[in-house]
């Protein structure tokens, strides 16, 4: 097996054009899958030495996050805390300290498990993804990207995430079976425009209720442009339960998840609205 360790994005893309290779980000999923024989890469392009991919910065109204930024780096970033609380929160509870030190946001998207912790916050925050492939650069909304199959064409590199800074307030909560090393059984990310007690645009994304994390258009419609009060919260809970019910259908986990999502929704609200979202 060939192993490449490029120093720049350009080199990485060039190698990807020559070899049928698999990109190695943090490795927490890829190395495991190689070990169990689930994946047999022909060649590996280790992105770990490309420093430009690790940057977390604010430019031109965007929070830019390099695909190789780790969950630990994001979870310790003051900038992410200030500008993208939902993402910051997701980074606190993902896996374990060891996993967070290794796993990257780009890898989280590339592997794209249904329970991927990073994706619902990015969806809620309206993130775009910059991809680089032999066809060139492409900036695509995460939402659009997640509707593609396969997610990425061969040799496509996730360059960075771009979160537009529109002054959204955001929050996140996840339900796992235990308090660490927990795979999300449900996760909810919410981002809203909030002025005094008036809710503007609302975006709600859910994890672990389908094959991939997704953004609910229905909830966005139903919850946008209203007063933030008890009624709104109850409406949100009712809505999110309906969405989960529709998404899971007859799956064994459905009866539980559609109940439990109310608590997760409430907790997600509580992460950025005082009084735990129960009283406004």
């Amino acid at each position: 097996m060939n192993y490449f360790q490029p120093q720049t994005v350009g080199q990485a893309v060039n190698i990807a054009q020559t070899f049928e290779a698999t990109f190695l980000a943090g490795g927490t999923d890829l190395v495991l899958h190689m070990q169990t024989g689930k994946i047999h890469p022909n060649a590996i392009i280790d992105l770990g030495k490309i420093s430009e991919l690790k940057e977390i910065k604010e430019t031109d109204g965007y929070l830019e996050i390099g695909s190789m930024a780790t969950f630990a780096e994001l979870g310790q970033s003051e900038l992410v805390f200030q500008k993208a609380l939902a993402l910051w929160l997701a980074c606190q509870t993902m896996g374990s300290p060891q996993i967070r030190n290794q796993a990257t946001l780009g890898g989280n998207l590339g592997n794209c498990s249904p329970a991927a912790d990073g994706l619902p916050p990015l969806l809620a925050l309206g993130a775009e993804v910059r991809l680089i492939s032999r066809e060139g650069d492409e900036v695509v909304s995460l939402e659009t990207l997640l509707s593609r199959t396969p997610l990425l064409s061969q040799g496509t590199l996730i360059r960075e995430f771009r979160i537009p800074l529109k002054g959204l307030q955001s929050g996140f909560a996840k339900l796992g079976r235990r308090k660490a090393l927990a795979i999300a059984r449900l996760s909810v990310a919410i981002a809203i425009e909030l002025e005094d007690n008036r809710v503007g645009k609302v975006r709600v994304a859910l994890g672990a209720v389908g094959k991939r994390a997704y953004l609910s258009e229905i909830l966005a419609r139903e919850l946008s442009d209203q007063e933030l009060n008890e009624v709104w919260i109850e409406k949100g809970i009712e809505g999110v339960q309906r969405v989960v019910r529709e998404a899971l259908g007859a799956r064994a986990s459905a009866p539980y998840k559609r109940e439990a999502v109310s608590g997760v929704f409430r907790e997600a609200l509580g992460t950025f609205i005082p009084e735990g979202g129960t009283k406004v």
């Binding site: 109310s262 608590g263 409430r266």
Partner: peptide
């Protein structure tokens, strides 16, 4: 016990 999620701490 969280009465909404059933989680026990």
């Amino acid at each position: 016990v969280d009465t909404e999620t059933g989680m026990v701490s």
